[in-house]
Every structure is written in C-alpha cells, then in structure tokens.
Write a protein that binds this DNA or RNA. Structure first.
Length: 929
RNA sequence: GGGCAGUUAGUUCAGUUGGUUAGAACGCUUCCUUGACAUGGAAGAGGUCAGAGGUUCGAGUCCUCUACUGCCCACCA
C-alpha cells in the first residue's frame, strides 16, 4: 500500500495474515526450518485457547481474550521462545443440538423423526457448514494461532482422550451411576450440572396451604381446626409429597410428630416427621416433603425412609402420579392446583417471596430439581489433589484475588453430574448387558445419599450388568451374552473440555508435542469460567498427567456495555467486534480493548476511536521517518556506533527514554499488566517520540550540517524501527506493513522475513541511560512551553515572531539553552532568543517563571496588564502558601528526625525552587507597577 | 445469607512497595489547515480522591466502621 495520509487497514490485514499463515510463522519455531538460529530452543511458551463454542460467533469477550493471548504469544515469539498457541472449538453439546433441532423444526421435524444416527449426520453437516465461523473471525482479529494444530472436541483424537479419561476414572472408582436429584431442563430434556443451572433471583410466591390432620372426621371438608399449614413456593410438587416435617424442638408442633396428615387433592395419608433441617422461623415452621422433587426433601426422605413419588415427565408435565392433573404443564398445574385448593377452602394466602431459581444456562428455562438416574464423577479426591497442588504453589492466579474464589469452590466441591440425555456428544463408553441387568431398567432406586456428597464407597466391585471399556465390548464378561446396548447418554461437553490442555497435544498418545509443551505456560480466561473449566482442567491435569496443566492463570475482566450490563446479544447492547474491525481495523480494536482492560471493560463505540487514532498516529509518524530517510542508505544501524560524545542531546534523550520505557513495558508484560504496558507505549510514542523528538529532529534533518543530518536519520531509523517491534504484539498489522518499508531501507543486512520474528528490542543492560540529556530536554521543554503559554495567554498570532529573553539563574542552565537556541526558536516561533544571567527589563515585557529560569517576551503595547497582574498575584499567593507549608513540614522535628534522607533532600530542593519562583513573581509584579 | 470488587475531573478510568503542588483519554474553552498526522498541533479551565474515625513525620494508597453500586456463590421450603 502506498503511504497515504490515512492508514487503511482493509488494504493490509488480509494480505499479511495470509502470508504469515501460509509461510508457517504461526507454528512453533522448532517446527519451521527457516528460522534463523532458533531451531532448537529450550524455552517453549505455550497457551491453549479457551475453546469457543462451535455455534458461537466472535463477541467482544472473545476479542479481548484473544487479543491478550495474541499479545502474549507474539511477545514471547519475538523473544525467541518456541511459541505455540493451540486453537480449537468445543462441540457445545446442548447448544449445537438446539441449533440443529431448531433447523429441523422449520421442516416440522424432530430429532426423533430422524433417529439418532441420521440426526447426528445432520449435526455434522451443520458443523462442516457453519462450525468454522468463529475461527475465521479469530483470523480477522490477527490471532497467531497454529492452525495446523487446530482441534475439535469431537475429533477422533479428542474422543479417544474422553474415553480414556472416563474409563480411567471408572477404574479408579471415581465414576458412579445412581438416582439422585439433579438439575433437569424440561425444554432441553437433559440433566445439567450444578454449574449449568444459573441461579437468578425471582420474585415468586410463597403459598400457604392447609393440610388436614387425618383421623377425626375422615375428610377435610369438616376438619375444623384439625389442620396444619405448610408454606411452599412450588405448590404443584405437593402431588409428590410423602411426609410433612417439623423441627423436633418446635414446641408448637411436638404433639403432631408421628400423626398422619391427609394430603389434599391426592387423598394420601402421609406422616408428620421430625427433622432438624426444618427452620421453625421460616414460613409456618412446617415443611411439605417431596423427596423426588427437591434436594433437601430427597435427603430428608432418605433419612426417614420415605417413598419417592416422581410426579413429572421429562418435559415438565404432570405424570400419572398426579391424578387429575396428569398431562398438564407444571406451571399450568400450579395454577389449577391453587385454584382447586381455594375451592376446597385450603388455600390461605400468597406471600410475595424473592428467591433464587435455577435457569438452564443454554435456554433459560426454569430448571426442575428432578430425580433421575445419572452418571457422576466423585470430585473430592480430585479436589484434594488440586488443593495440594495449590499448597505447593503450583496454581498461581493473577490477579491474586481469584485464588480465593477457586479455593472456596474446591472446598465446597460437589459431585459432578456428567451424563446428558442428548445425542450430540461423546456417548458414554458403558454397555448394558440386557440379560444381567434386567432389574436395573426402569429407574429402580439405588440407595439414596444426600445430594452433593458421594456415596461413602463406590459400589461396582460386584458386577451390575454394566461394562465400561475403552473398546466396544463384544460380549458380556459374565454371562457371555451378546445382547449389549451402549448407554444412550452422552457426556457433558466440559468432560471433554477439561482435558483440553493435554488432549490437544495428543494425549493419550505419547506425542512429542505432549512431551515438549506440557504443562503449558499461561491460561488466559474470563472469571465466569473458573469453575466450569479452569478448576476442572487443573484437576484433570493432576489426575491424568500428574501435573498442573498451566503454570499461571490470568483472569481478565468482563466486557460490559457502557450501561454496566454484561454485553449480550439478547440484551441488544452488544457491539460486534467484526464491525469495529471493518470500520477501524483489527489493530484499533485490539489496542483499545487492551488499553481498557485493567479491570472490567465498559464499552461504547467511541472508545475504539482511541485505538484508531493511535494506529493512525503511528502510521504517520513512521511515514515521516521514512520520508526523511529517502536519501538514507545505511539501515544496518549498529547501536554500538552511537557515542554519547558525538550524539545530539535530543538523540541522546530519545535513546535513553526508549530504553527506559522498553524495560518498563517488558516488566508490565511479565506480570500480565498489558493495559499498563499499552499505556506506557502509547505515551512514549505519542508524547516523547512524536511531539518532541520528531519536532526536534526536523531542524536537524533539514539543516545544513550533513553529519548531524545523517546521525539524526540513524537515530530516527533506529528508534522508530524498535518502536514498531514494541508495538507489534499489540497492533500486528500496521506495524508489519510499515516495518516492511523499513526493511527495504536496510538493504544488505539480514532481517527476518516478518516483523513477527524480529527480536524483541529490550536488552537487559542500559546502554543509553543519560540523566544529563533527560535534564537538558526537560529545560528545553519548559522553555518552549513557557513561551507558547505566553503566546496563548496574550493572543499572539503564530505568524508573529517574537523576541524572547531567558534569564537563567545558573550558568549551567544558560549553557543548555544556548545549545538549543535553534530548536527553541523553531518550536516556539521566535525571531531571537537571548540567554542571559543578569537581566534588566526594558519596556513592556511579560514572563513565565521557572525555578531554573524566567523567560520574557516583549510586548509592544497590545495588552491588558490588569489581567496579568491578577494572575501574578494569584501565583504569588499560591507560592507563598506552598512555601509556608514546606517550611512547616521541614521544621517539624519529628519529620526531620524520622523521614529518610532522600525525602528530606527532595523537600529541601522543593523549598529552594519555590523560593526562586517567589522571587521571580515578586520582581515581575513590581515591574508591572 | 456468605464472599469479592468498586466509589478519584463533566464522563470513562490510571495511580506499583505510603513520600513532588493527584494523572490520562474523551468532552469542554481559546488559538492554529506551519510539508508526517485535523483520526492532527498548541495552550487552558476543571478534583475538599464516597463519608467518619484511626495508624504514621507523612495517607488517594494501610487499618476500622458507615453509605451506596456492581458481580459471584448458596438446597430455608
């Protein structure tokens, strides 16, 4: 692309991305023979991508997450590491199945019409057609993933890993199957894990209902006072009540314990039991007990050997146990039941009640606590290993506060329900021998145990008719029968995701990648995924590989809309990152996101302008440098040739400044301070390099002094090219485009083919540290700004060239300003600049005061001195106050005694400066009359 | 109910281990199309750092309490 005034991302992004990819630069260096001198590196840097959902599209959260990862990977790659970033997507069982089912619904078909096999074919077809949307979008973002290693959780290799993991856990006694209350989504018709049931506060009702005491009259129409009152939020579950419970110590109800109650509508006699779980303070102090529809009741039911009556069908309708209500939807039944109770005079009242209700995280349907037979992973032993690894300092979270969140979850770990009653996913590698297992069909109860805890011992030593195996078994090992049926359930998608750090590297095969790249270096992800994924990956890593899967975990902020709400499509407040890329470029998107990422990222469209403006600034600064370099042949700049004695002060300054900032950026990057690093870089490039160095370089480059010109060109080239390297991880496209032009200037020297592989420009040592130059440029900046300020205050047109006099308070200052005479004249638009030690004011002049010098310009009668007088008086007053405060501080004995010496010195210096200023203001004021 | 964050300029946020007269971006005011850049340059206005105590020579920064906001977790029906 020609060096137009405006940077146009469209012209370069695809070009460079496809070059990088096709030349294989995204692969680890050890994989491509062409990389100079880096064939065998012993420092791998590896990240695995948090696999996005195959149905997903790139949203801002992904854009932030992947920008951060790409910066880290590109940075490490430039540092010479054997950098690997493994991409991939997960199969998102429920979500993908939902998508395909919706598609079928348009043709008025269900998955049942097709049957399992055909349906799965449809899903695969959908995946082939649409499943790569998100990875295409990641390419637009510039993500330098090694696409040759891209993985999918349903791949052959990863499926093998899943099977291996399942069977291994089973063999270790960590997988069991049983009837428990799980979270059931009636719409998706599958079990969910606890993490997949998102609790939301809902303003619901607490319904008070009379239950008659059995016996006296035999029917509740005439019961009089012989009733109790229960309070419930889900009246429809009363159809499955098998007891009523009170607290054993509740004096109000002690006499009822052991009596019978007649369950209204169902007319079943149920006992009153005593259980310490019941809180006498809540509701009426009496709880209806529904063991098949509530986890607490399930536990209570088990303690008291109560019958479990399941009153619902998998799609959330009342079943045959619900008598007259059979076939009604659960919420419909709720209404009808309340209505019927009211007719019977049994309904007392509805209190408004705020409580947390589980919602399916995929379809937002209210989840039903539901008794069913599922597969579980016994988590305590896995969590213990993770806790131990933490004690050994192997899991390092950044920011550190997430450690606590993680540990809390591990401490309260509950068993993981891993079976799903859907078709898209890894079918459970368990086969049922029909002959041996006849009794097991039909949901026979196994011994119930309090939900959330594991059975004390897993019971599968005695054969229960289930064969769990890596390979499909041919016959039952016990009865030799051939009538084997694979368990129809599939595994939770997270059961494949938790293996991701090593399954993507080839496990369970013993691959070279696994050996070289495991454990990985960093994991970068969002906080909401700590439980779902991070914690489980750590557990899996320890269980299957004996080692944590990554050394550090960086948890970045959540992307929110400016309103503060989470950005989501359903709320209609999302900004499409692809649109931003189209409008402003991937570099602008990346830089803006990262700059804002110090904490949660609140976005609005305008925020991206910062990144866009900055990329454009970089573009133009480089364009200027290239223009200055037209007659410049020597691109092989060796920093060794820069000698302090021969360099100009501005050049010494920018080199010193560059080195300092580069070190700081390096430091920030090393501790995941990407926002700070980006901020430093932004200000260094914009303020130091563009606003000062380039402006100072102009007169030197355009002047007559050939040696100075050449030297300045060299420094411009040197610093600018290194700036491009520092910027590259953050904004890979512009920097590559313009760096290639720099490369053309450097004919004859060996540069890498791409900026991606240029060395990171941060050396350990300080070669250019230069306090004297820093100080000198400080004085120059003050002088120039001082004059500009006067010009602005007195409204002097830029065309009006001024005569300025600097009254220096020390000879050293005068020396500095004399060497900068030409620069100051250009930058402040002066006709003359006199540097003096003794100054006598003549005529109308105004001044700006600094501790080191006062700077005057003459004004020929144009102005209003009254304003200036007022301003000076104000300044004078401020300075007096400041001096008083400083004196007080210094004279305070406790301060003089206790403060460290260097602070003391600084304060004294401040006082001296303040005094000098005061004198300046006084004399100026006096001269104004 | 438990936990975690946040409260600093009109707005959105920085502010490392306590140590210059608290910074930036956007917005605002004034001036400037000077050959890198108007997606720009120069100058400026704008803050009792949520409130109250405490520790310290010194607190935006550490401690305690209070108020508000947001998030996460939790089986009180």
């Amino acid at each position: 692309m020609e060096l137009d005034k405006q940077y146009d991302p469209k012209q370069v992004e695809t070009k460079w991305y496809s070059l990088w990819e096709s030349e294989g630069y995204f692969r680890p260096r050890s994989d491509f023979p062409g990389a100079e001198g880096l064939k065998e590196t012993s420092n791998p840097y590896v990240i695995v991508i948090p696999p996005p959902n195959v149905t997903g599209i790139l949203h801002m959260g992904h854009a932030l997450n992947n920008s951060i990862q790409d910066i880290l990977v590109r940075w490490n790659r430039m540092k010479g590491a054997d950098a690997l970033w493994v991409p991939g997507v997960d199969h998102a069982g429920i979500a993908t199945q939902n998508v395909v089912e919706k598609k079928l619904a348009k043709e008025k078909k269900t998955r049942w019409d097709l049957g399992r096999e055909k349906f799965l074919k449809e899903v695969w077809k959908w995946k082939e057609e649409h499943g790569s949307t998100i990875t295409r979008q990641l390419r637009r973002l510039g993500a330098s993933c090694d696409w040759t290693r891209e993985r999918f959780t349903m791949d052959e290799g990863l499926s093998k890993a899943v099977r291996e993991a399942f069977v291994t856990l089973y063999e270790r006694g960590l997988i069991y199957r049983g009837n428990y209350i799980i979270n059931w989504c009636p719409r998706c018709q599958t079990a969910l894990s606890d993490e997949e049931a998102a609790h939301k506060d809902v303003q619901g009702g607490l319904y008070h209902i009379k239950y008659p005491i059995a016996g006296k009259n035999g029917s509740y129409e005439k019961m009089g006072d012989d009733h109790i009152v229960v309070a419930t939020t889900r009246p429809e579950t009363m159809l499955g009540d098998t007891a009523v419970a009170v607290n054993p110590d509740d004096p109000r109800y002690k006499h009822l314990i052991g009596k019978k109650i007649v369950l209204p509508l169902v007319n079943r006699e149920i006992p009153v039991i005593a259980d310490a779980f019941v809180d006498p303070e809540f509701g009426t102090g009496i709880v209806k007990v529904t063991p098949a529809h509530d986890p607490n009741d399930f536990a209570m039911g088990h303690r008291h050997h109560l019958e479990q009556v399941n009153v619902m069908t998998p799609d959330g309708k009342i079943n045959e146990h619900g008598g007259a209500y059979k076939g009604m939807d659960r919420f419909e039944a709720r209404k009808k039941i309340l209505h019927d109770l009211e007719e019977l005079g049994l309904f007392i009242k509805r209190d408004s009640h705020l409580h947390a209700v589980g919602h399916c995280y995929r379809c937002d349907t209210v989840v039903e606590p539901y008794l069913s037979k599922q597969w579980f992973v016994k988590m305590q032993p896995l969590a213990d290993k993770a806790l131990k690894a933490h004690e050994q300092g192997k899991t390092v979270f950044s920011p550190d506060r997430w450690t606590k969140v993680y540990l809390n979850w591990l401490h309260g770990i509950r068993d993981w329900c891993i079976s799903r009653q859907i078709w898209w996913g890894h079918q459970i590698p368990a086969w049922h021998c029909k002959k041996c297992q006849a009794a097991d069909i039909g949901g026979r109860m196994e011994d119930g145990v309090k939900p959330g805890s594991s059975p004390s011992a897993i019971r599968h030593p005695s054969f229960d008719g289930i064969i769990v195996a890596r390979e499909t078994p041919k016959e039952c090992p016990k009865c030799k029968g051939k009538d084997l049926v694979q368990d129809p359930d599939v595994l939770d998608t997270w059961f494949s995701s938790w293996l991701w750090p090593f399954s993507t590297l080839g496990w369970p095969e013993k691959t070279g990648d696994l050996k070289k790249f495991y454990p990985t270096s960093d994991l970068v992800t969002a906080p909401e995924i700590i439980f779902f994924w991070v914690a489980r990956m750590i557990m899996a890593g320890l269980e299957f590989r004996g080692e944590v899967p990554f050394r550090r975990i960086y948890i970045h902020g959540t992307v929110r809309a400016a309103s503060g709400l989470k950005m989501s499509k359903s709320l209609g407040n999302s900004i499409d990152p692809l649109e931003v890329i189209d409008e402003m470029g991937a570099d602008a998107l990346r830089y803006s996101l990262v700059m804002l990422s110090a904490q949660d990222v609140y976005l609005s469209r305008e925020k991206f302008e910062m990144g866009r403006n900055f990329t454009n600034k970089v573009w133009n600064a480089c364009r200027f440098v290239l223009m200055q370099l037209e007659d410049f042949k020597d691109g092989s700049v060796d920093p060794g040739q820069f000698k302090k004695e021969t360099l100009s002060l501005p050049s010494r300054w920018i080199l010193s400044q560059f080195e300092e900032k580069a070190a700081e950026i390096e430091r920030y990057l090393g501790q995941f301070g990407l926002a700070q690093a980006a901020g430093e870089l932004y200000h260094f490039v914009w303020d130091d390099f563009c606003d000062w160095y380039i402006e100072l370089a102009k007169p030197m480059v355009q002047g007559q002094d050939a040696a100075l010109k050449h030297q300045t060109q060299q420094v411009l080239f040197f610093v600018c090219e290194r700036i491009l390297r520092l910027l590259h991880p953050f904004m890979p496209f512009v920097t590559e485009e313009i760096w290639q032009k720099f490369k053309e200037k450097a004919k004859g020297t060996r540069w890498p083919k791409t900026l991606m592989l240029a060395p990171w420009p941060c050396d350990a040592g300080r070669r250019f540290g230069d306090a004297a130059a820093q100080k000198a440029i400080g004085i120059l900046q003050k002088a120039v700004s001082g004059i500009r300020d006067l010009r602005s205050r007195f409204r002097i047109a830029p065309a009006n060239k001024l005569k300025a006099v600097v009254a220096c308070k020390e000879e050293a200052t005068r020396e500095v300003l004399r060497t900068f005479e030409r620069e100051v004249k250009v930058l402040a638009r002066l006709e003359t600049l006199d540097c003096v030690l003794e100054f006598r004011k003549e005529g109308a002049m105004v001044a700006n005061a600094f501790p080191e010098f006062d700077i005057f310009i003459s004004l020929e009668g144009i102005l209003d001195l009254g304003e200036e007088k007022k301003r000076l008086q104000k300044k004078l007053q401020e300075t007096e106050q400041w001096i008083t405060a400083l004196r007080a501080k210094l004279e305070k004995p406790s301060f003089a005694e206790k403060a460290p010496q260097e602070i003391l010195e600084k304060e004294k210096e401040k006082l001296e400066d303040a005094k000098k200023l005061l004198v300046s203001y006084q004399s100026q004021l006096a001269s104004l009359g």
